[in-house]
């Protein structure tokens, strides 16, 4: 069993958010297989960036309400 499957087994056995974490793990593993650790880094950073953009967009709206 490879590293990917071993991690998947553990995620399946976890109580909280197994489906969401499995999906995230699949994205991490796919990124790693496509472009190594740099791809993992950029994929996660990109996800954080999307959330940050949304956050800042709403922040702008709230600032205007002041």
């Amino acid at each position: 069993m490879g590293y990917k499957e071993k991690v998947e087994d553990k995620i399946r056995g976890s109580l909280e958010r197994p489906e969401e974490r499995m999906k995230l793990w699949e994205q991490i593993a796919t990124a790693y297989e496509e472009g190594g650790l740099q791809q993992v880094e950029s994929m996660l950073a990109e996800k954080a960036e999307v959330l940050r953009d949304r956050f800042e967009n709403v922040m702008d709206k709230l600032q205007k309400m002041l």
């Binding site: 791809q39 993992v40 880094e41 994929m43 996660l44």
Partner: peptide, 17 residues
């Protein structure tokens, strides 16, 4: 593979964001 994945996660600095 474990080490590299962990390194990629660490470098993404999610907690900093």
């Amino acid at each position: 593979d474990y080490l590299n994945v962990l390194d990629g996660i660490r470098r993404s600095k999610i907690a900093d964001a």
